[in-house]
Design a protein around this nucleic acid. Structure first.
Length: 526
RNA sequence: GCAGCCGUAGCUCAACUGGAUAGAGCAUCUGACUACGGAUCAGAAGGUUCGGGGUUCGAAUCCCUGCGGCUGCGCCA
């Protein structure tokens, strides 16, 4: 129909012409024309069966590597130092990690860089609090919690006390001026925070190639601003240095400030310096920013400024919406605080554990614990990845840990069932154990689904939609359950048995692999 | 005020970027089992895709407009 439109011809006639001249070469039956001009190709069972046999021998499960691999610097997670990660960081961390896994699998060179907020105004308050409010023993037992307590308290006090706010600013100025005492405290804070963050990343199975935080760029900022001024890209305005975008209708009234009137720099400055570094030192062809949607304007400005400087690197902003509570407001605890990521993970594991306890109490303790970890963390990740990143979504334990529907437990369970067959069989899959003959409709539709993995995985990167992969896996699991109901495996013999074992084996592999691309582990039992 | 994102079943979400009768899950109702793991499956019901125009063979999707929600808008990050 697209072709007919371009040729300005009748869609049905065009379709008929194509259908007549098409030679399926044995792959599929003669095409049929339907509706306003659709052409339906029906795969022959033999070619579909041959495809399954190929997939069984293919570690990549049919997914072709990208024809033109790129070097992608992936900017995600990026929490602030001395503040705990809260649920808002969940999306960036999980989405970014997943996109990195998929890009790597497709053959791209992915350099993940955790651009942590380890420099900035918040350190004025932290330094003041460190000196006046710090509880050393609390710091020793739980550094992150103590840093948070201090930060919150100073923040609350400073809001109501202008003199205190000035003292905080003075501490910041000392730090920025290189005061040894403040620098030492700052370094200690950063080190402690990194340890705490790493523990969460370990649990999430997320890792980074680099942690080039904001402070890494400190001595590159002044020269950058001078260069911008010299090139006529930036200009002075009310004492500050700004980049204006007068030629751009949308950004015309919204300059990016790269140096404050007091001489300080801002995150726009850092972000521009960061682009230089990533292109120059990391060899980036593309930079992907997995950052919340509210930062849209900021990235529009940064990208426009980079373009003015002649940067040709492909800059991609990958925004996402907010996580809401059941009241449809930003997720908060009962006491009104932001919800901490570590608490979310703990609760997910506890809830998963109690479900396992109920369903399968006879499993060994140790196995129960590890299953609970996989299912709990997997559920949190899957809830995130299974929906379109831009929609604000409602955080709901019962939905994400449900054993039914589009959830991690359902998918992991489907995988477990594929393994159960072979456990019962007492042996692994034997590729030479017979012929694959797709006789039943449930076998055919499952095989078709399996063959579609090849096209589903690359499509995720078209618009950065992991939910497309999630939804494929869910449909695969559903197809497998239909097959399971309709086609007994171990009660038949010969080719039907081999065919069904092959389908179980392939389904298991695709589920495990696909969940792996989402950053979710599987278990053999649950 | 200006800009961005969003608005789909009672609820939570899809819809391969312009295609066929808009699909799932939850909740509701009806069925199947002494089960190769029922942690399952079959079925029913549920819709003016926020309203109104437009573009075309064809619109949830693109354009215009109104309404509603969220977010951002020169010296925080």
């Amino acid at each position: 129909m697209v072709l007919a439109k371009a040729l300005r011809r009748n869609p049905r006639e065009t379709a008929a012409l194509i259908a007549e001249t098409f030679d399926g070469g044995g792959l599929c039956a003669p095409p049929e024309i339907a509706g306003p001009g659709f052409i339906n190709f029906r795969l022959e069972s033999e070619s579909l069966a041959a495809r399954c046999a190929d997939l069984l021998g293919d570690e990549r499960l049919g997914v072709a590597p990208a024809p033109a691999p790129r070097t992608v610097v992936l900017d995600f997670s990026a929490p602030n130092v001395a503040k705990p990660m809260h649920v808002g960081h969940i999306r960036s961390t999980i989405l970014g990690d997943c996109l990195g896994r998929i890009a790597r699998f497709l053959g791209h060179r992915v350099v993940s860089d955790n651009h942590i907020g380890d420099w900035g105004t918040q350190f004025g308050m932290i330094l003041w609090g460190w000196k006046k409010l710090l509880d050393e023993s609390a710091l020793a037992s739980d550094p992150i919690a103590e840093l948070l307590r201090v930060y919150r308290e100073v923040n609350a006090r400073a809001k109501a006390d202008e003199a205190l706010m000035e003292e905080c600013k003075a501490e910041l100025v000392k730090l920025q001026g290189g005061d040894p005492g403040n620098l030492a405290i700052w370094e200690k804070c950063v080190a402690l925070s990194k340890e705490g963050l790493q523990r969460i990343y370990d649990r999430l199975d997320v890792s980074f190639d680099h942690w080039f935080g904001e402070s890494f760029y400190n001595d590159r900022l002044a020269p950058l601003v001078e260069e911008l001024l010299a090139a006529g890209i930036a200009e002075k305005s009310d004492g500050a240095v700004c980049v204006f975008f007068r030629e751009d209708e949308r950004l015309a009234g919204k300059p990016a400030i790269v140096r404050k009137s007091d001489g300080g720099f801002l995150y726009a400055t850092t972000d521009l310096a960061t682009i230089d570094f990533r292109v120059g030192e990391l060899g980036a062809d593309e930079i992907w920013y997995v950052v919340g949607a509210p930062q849209q304007l900021h990235f529009d400005q940064i990208f426009a400024a980079a373009k003015k400087r002649g940067q040709t690197v492909a800059l991609r902003f990958i925004p996402f919406g907010s996580i809401l509570g059941k009241d449809r407001k930003m997720l908060k605890t009962r006491s009104g605080d932001t919800v901490q990521l570590a608490d979310v993970l703990d609760e997910a594991v506890v809830r998963a554990r109690s479900i396992i306890e109920e369903k399968n109490p006879e499993l060994p303790e140790e196995e129960k614990a590890s299953i609970a970890e996989v299912v709990g963390i997997g559920s949190v990740k899957y809830a995130e990845l299974s929906q379109f990143r831009m929609t604000d979504y409602v955080f709901d334990w019962d939905t994400m840990l449900s054993l039914k529907g589009n959830t991690a437990p359902y998918l992991i369970n489907a995988y477990v069932r594929t393994r159960a067959i072979f456990r019962r069989l007492g042996a692994g899959f034997e590729p030479g154990g017979g012929r694959i003959v797709l006789a039943e409709e449930a076998e055919r539709s499952l095989a078709l689904r399996l063959a579609q993995y090849a096209e589903t995985v690359p499509s995720v990167l078209d618009d950065f939609r992991p939910n497309a992969l999630a939804s494929y896996l869910y449909e695969l699991a559903t197809a497998y359950h239909h097959f399971w109901e309709a086609c007994p495996v171990l009660k038949v013999e010969g080719d039907p048995r081999h065919t069904r074992l092959a389908l179980c084996e392939l389904t298991g592999r695709v589920l495990r692999h696909g969940l792996g691309l989402l950053g979710i582990r599987t278990t053999e039992r649950m």
